[in-house]
Design a protein around this nucleic acid. Structure first.
Length: 508
RNA sequence: GGCGCUUUCGUCUAGCGGUUAGGACGCGGCCCUCUCACGGCUGAAACACGAGUUCGAGUCUCGUAAGCGCUACCA
């Protein structure tokens, strides 16, 4: 019987959500939507030592910004709750007991210090079939002794009893069958004494089963423990509803070694978090994609193409297109280095698709920061339309269009050297005379008149126009000259030329 | 050390036995042009290595190497 697709993204609230986690969540989301299934957001807070306040809110806010909507979760509700593992203690206890009663798990009293000593004493020590007989556990003690120790309040953990010499097969949807021998697995702790909570492994399997998860889609770092998880499903007698596994390739550091980590971002000059994060303990601020001027669609599109492709050359894909095209058959198996330059290009592309009006709205707060008040939105949209082709981020708008708001006070030395030749002041004076005579100062008629003046007088087009530009813009850059003068108006244009004549000096 | 995964231009990747090995980012050139961009065209740039299977291997098999991951009472 085909079960309804149900997937989950299960972050632990130990800090801000990492961009690699976002990618994993995205693939879960795309797969769920593609198959008309559900996606669950489950908070895996079983490590009380690493809990960071605010992390859960951060996760929710990040997904809201990115446009990834969950069907079930702490905020969304649902019929399979609670969705926070710390609130499911009683459930886990019950299932641990089941394993204990069936002889699939056992109680161990070894303290962390004792284990550490063993590891120091014996090279490659592993708690498994070969060594459990020499440890302090319910397999080496009488039932009475175990009971007595527990009654005395002695701390203990529950360990999974792994039978050696079995081949365990994990069927991974992107990697195929992965077979490993159970002898290399250790008797993993399923239930911790330290904080009276299960470990990831136990909680994960119990929750996925109870929440009827059909596909476990997670990062490749989980592949080595996947056989353990298969064994757990079997121990519980849930093998027939065991989910399919997918282990996604990792996102790697752009400069070579290792997987992308939380510290790489500000070290290499790009964000690794969706949103800016203020560390509550240290007070450190880590940059986020949102605050850096990225559009969420661009981030989604960029991430989607890291480890997946649509099967053709299309690169700009909307969320809906991603959903309709998504399939594990087009997932790659190898890690992807994070290429920030390409990320910028995606943002550029998405910025170009925005309307001038919408971009102008985003520009407003930046202008305000510069102390510029602009209430003529039509004019601002026009300015945006002239420069948006050259921006990667909304904030670049200022650098590209500031001369519309502020007359130049300095002139680019390189351009002065190249363009401000002998006789320029006189030529510019003449140009002022021409401009003064223009009735309709809009772009097309002005251009016609000025260009006509240049050619009939036999002037050099490049010399005149660049000197003109230098006085108005301050450097030889920018959009079509007469689009600029139209927006500036005749008076301001002439004023700038006069200022230029007075102030531009050839460098010594 | 052990176990596992991976391996096509610098980077992201297409390729699923026969291709001039394709696209994109970045980089160079040309065109457009008053400038800088955009855009268009274009160039340089890759099958890790070695065996084997086959008429034929980037594609299949094995080995080697390298990279990565895991190896906690963290997830």
């Amino acid at each position: 019987m085909e079960r309804k697709v149900r997937v989950r993204f299960a972050p632990s609230p130990t800090g801000p959500l990492h961009i690699g986690g976002v990618r994993t969540a995205l693939f879960n989301y795309l797969f769920a939507r593609r198959h008309g299934g559900d996606i669950i957001l489950r908070i895996e807070d079983t490590d009380s030592n690493r809990f960071v306040p605010g992390a859960e809110d951060y996760i929710n806010e990040a997904f809201a910004w990115l446009g990834i909507k969950f069907d079930e979760g702490v905020r969304e509700g649902g019929n399979y709750g609670p969705y926070r593992q710390s609130e499911r203690r009683d459930i886990y206890r019950q299932y641990v007991k089941q394993l204990l009663d069936n002889g699939k798990a056992y109680i161990a009293f070894d303290t962390p210090e004792e284990l550490e000593a063993k590891r120091a004493e014996i090279a490659n020590f592993q708690y498994d079939a070969k060594t459990r007989g020499m440890m302090r556990n319910s397999l080496t003690m009488s039932a009475d002794e175990v009971k007595q120790r527990i009654d005395n309040g002695e701390k203990y953990v529950v360990r999974f009893l792994i039978e050696p010499n079995h081949d365990v097969t994990v069927n991974d949807l992107v990697r195929g069958k992965v077979v490993i021998n159970s002898s290399i697995l250790d008797d993993k702790v399923l239930y911790k004494s330290a904080d009276d909570l299960p470990t990831y492994h136990l909680a994960n399997i119990v929750d996925d089963h109870l929440m009827e998860v059909t596909h476990v889609i997670r990062g490749e770092e989980w592949l080595p423990s996947a056989p353990l998880h298969v064994l757990l499903y079997e121990a519980f007698g849930w093998a027939d509803t065991m989910p399919e596994f997918v282990h996604l390739p990792l996102l790697l550091k752009p400069d070579g070694k290792g997987k992308l980590s939380k510290r790489d971002g500000d070290r290499l000059g790009f964000p690794v978090f969706p949103l800016e994060w203020h560390d509550p303990k240290s007070g450190d601020v880590a940059s986020g994609y949102r605050e850096s001027g990225y559009l969420p669609q661009a981030v989604i599109n960029f991430l989607a193409l890291l480890g997946w492709n649509p099967g053709n050359d299309q690169e700009i894909l909307s969320m809906d297109e991603l959903i309709s095209l998504f399939s594990f058959e087009h997932c790659s198996k190898s890690g992807a280095k994070f290429d920030f330059e390409k990320g910028k290009w995606f943002n550029h592309k998405y910025l170009q698709e925005m309307s001038d009006e919408a971009l102008a709205q985003l520009y407003l707060p930046i202008l305000e920061e510069k102390g510029i008040k602009c209430d003529d939105m039509a004019k601002l949209s026009r300015i945006v339309s002239l420069v948006k082709g050259r921006i990667n981020f909304v904030k670049d708008l200022w650098e590209q269009s500031k001369f519309f708001f502020e007359a130049p006070t300095t002139y680019a030395e390189k351009d002065v050297r190249k363009r401000w030749k002998d006789g320029m002041p006189e030529l510019m004076e003449a140009l002022i005379g021409v401009l003064e005579g223009i009735e309709d100062f809009t772009s097309v008629p002005s251009e016609e008149i000025v260009l006509n003046w240049i050619t009939t007088n036999g002037y050099h087009m490049g010399n005149v126009m660049n000197a003109f530009r230098l006085t108005v813009v301050g450097e030889c850059k920018g959009p079509h000259m007469f689009d600029i003068t139209e927006i500036l108006g005749k008076e301001e244009t002439i004023r700038r030329i006069r200022t230029g004549i007075a102030n531009i000096k050839l460098p010594e």
